[in-house]
Each structure stands twice: as C-alpha cells, then as structure tokens.
Amino acid sequence: MNELDQKADKTLQDNTAVMLVTGGAKRIGAAIIKAAHDKGYRVIIHCHRSQQRAERLAKALNSIRADSASVVVADLALVNNQAELNDFVQHVIEPFGQLDVLVHNASRFYPTPIGSIDNPQWDELMLTNAKAPLLLSQALLPYLQVQQGCIVSLLDIHAYDKPFSGYTVYNMAKAAQRTMVQSLALELAPDVRVNGVAPGVNILPDANSDQALDQAQQDNIVRSIPMQRIGTPEDIAQSVLFLIEALYITGHIINIDGGRSLTLAGD
C-alpha cells in the first residue's frame, strides 16, 4: 500500500463507527462483535474472565482489517467505584477516540429458588443485569451524544409478563433493565437512541455446566417454539445491527424467540 492509500485508509477508519460490547468475547457477544466488524465497525471487546478468547478474537479481526478491534478487561463491579469507572471509560475511549454504539450484553444467569436467595446472589444478578448497564450508560453518555449514537440492551422474553420459574432475582433484574431501556429512550432523545433485544432460547447452556440440558429436554424446548428450532447467536446479532441502523426507532424491544413468547408460560 503506497502512502496515499495509507492516508485514505486512515481517513476511512477515522470515520468508521465504534461499538463497545460488554461480555463480547464469546457466545452472543462475540457474534455481535463479528457481525458489526463485518459491517465495517471498529469494535471494542469487553471481557472479564475470558481475556484469552477476547484477545484471539481481536487478533483475528485485526488480521482482516488492521487496527479495527481492541480489548478492554474489567470486572463490571467497578461501577461501584467512581475512580475505577472513570478509568474504564478512558480505556474504552483511548483506542479509537470515540464511541458510537454501546451494547449491554454481559449478564449473569442462574436460578434463585425461593428459600435459598441470599445477598451475594441478589448483588451479582442486579449488578450485571441492571446496575452496571445503567451506570455504564451514564458514564459513556457524553461520548455517545457527540456521535448521535445509540445503546442496545440484551434483555429476556421472561422479563415481561412471563417470569421464568425459580429465577426470581434474575427476572427482577432483567425487568429493571427493560424499564431502563424505556426510561432512557425518553430521557436521552433525540441525541441518543435506546433499544432492546429480548432473546428466547437462542443458545443452550454449556454441556458441562450445572444447567446443561439432556436431549429430551432440548427436544421438548424445540417443540414449544413455533419456528421449530433453537435460535442462534447470529439471530441476535442481526437484530442488534438492525436496531443500531434504524435511525427512527427508540424505546423499542424486539423479541427474538422464534415465536416462543406467544405460547410460553413461565417455566
């Protein structure tokens, strides 16, 4: 590449939108990162315990397009400390000098049956699903406003009307995040749009996890979905990108569940 081409490439990169995805190293988060990068976005991959996977993903994306992906490692409990939160914001902005899109994907999910709920469970589920998304949105808002950007939250079909039995704290936390989406959509318009995506069964628990499903359970779930298949992380990523690029949509939440919410009772 000659010097003129290098300058043109640098100018193009400087005008390219930047997206931060929390929990972006694997599963749905990684699918969003890859889909955005394919569309030309520069991407910031946030991770906590998955740094090696985040670094591998960034390396792969940078091999496709130089200086287009960055990694930031942080425990989102940093929102409880203003100095740490300020440092996180600087680490996010430093690689590319701007932020156009914030995607709240990082989340903890596990059952909290009544009679066993304790304060650490409450604190962790509320932090990752409600408190951190709100305080990160607030901290990064000045940069989003400059770019007339947007925020997208990953929610859950169980966060509205059809709670997931045995997951009361998670349901409450996601319901709070859903209300955050609608509240911020009102408060931040017209400068920043805020929307949500509510997955159904778009990814199964890891086979070696304590929530792994056997084949009979998986077959039962598929039968309950009108589209007759488990969704994919790519289905979610496609919808996130749609909301990012739909400039007259704010305060909207799209169910990406193959129609399951039409037939589902909380279970």
Rank of each mutant, 00 (worst) to 15 (best):
H91F: 10
A54Y: 02
S137P: 08
Y143V: 09
R53D: 03
Q145G: 11
G97Y: 05
A74L: 13
L140S: 00
L141P: 02
M126K: 03
T112F: 03
Q90H: 11
P111Q: 07
L78W: 15
Q52W: 15
A130T: 13
C150L: 14
P111H: 06
A106V: 03
Q82H: 13
L61M: 06
T112N: 02
N81E: 15
A60Y: 12
E124P: 09
I151R: 02
V79H: 01
V89D: 06
P142F: 10
V71N: 03
Q148V: 11
V71P: 00
F88V: 03
P120Q: 08
A77V: 15
D67R: 08
C150W: 03
A69N: 01
A139Y: 06
L102G: 00
N81K: 12
C150H: 02
V73C: 11
V146K: 15
S116I: 09
G115P: 00
N80V: 09
V43S: 03
L144F: 04
S107G: 12
Q82M: 14
S63M: 10
H48T: 08
L57W: 02
A83N: 14
L76M: 12
S137Q: 10
V101C: 10
P111E: 01
D87R: 12
I45A: 00
L85G: 05
H48G: 04
K131W: 09
L99S: 04
H46M: 09
Q51H: 13
V71D: 05
K59I: 08
N105I: 05
G115C: 04
P113R: 07
H91E: 12
A132I: 01
N119H: 13
A69C: 04
G115Q: 06
L134Q: 14
L57S: 00
L78F: 14
N105D: 04
T112E: 01
W122F: 15
Q148N: 13
W122D: 08
Q145P: 06
L61I: 11
Q145W: 13
Q90T: 14
S107I: 08
Y110I: 07
I114V: 11
E124M: 14
K59Q: 14
V72A: 07
P120F: 09
A130S: 10
I93L: 10
L127E: 09
H104R: 09
I64P: 05
P133M: 09
R49I: 08
S50H: 07
P120Y: 05
Q52D: 10
V71H: 01
V43C: 03
C47Q: 05
E124G: 04
D100H: 01
S70F: 06
L140E: 01
Q82P: 15
N119C: 13
D100W: 00
Q145I: 11
Q82K: 15
Y41A: 03
R108T: 11
Q51G: 06
L102P: 01
Q121V: 02
A132T: 02
L141F: 12
S50L: 14
L135M: 15
F96I: 01
R53Q: 09
I45P: 00
I151S: 05
K131L: 14
I64H: 15
N80S: 12
L78A: 14
L76E: 07
A69G: 04
N86F: 14
V152G: 03
Q52M: 12
L61C: 05
Y41G: 03
N129Y: 15
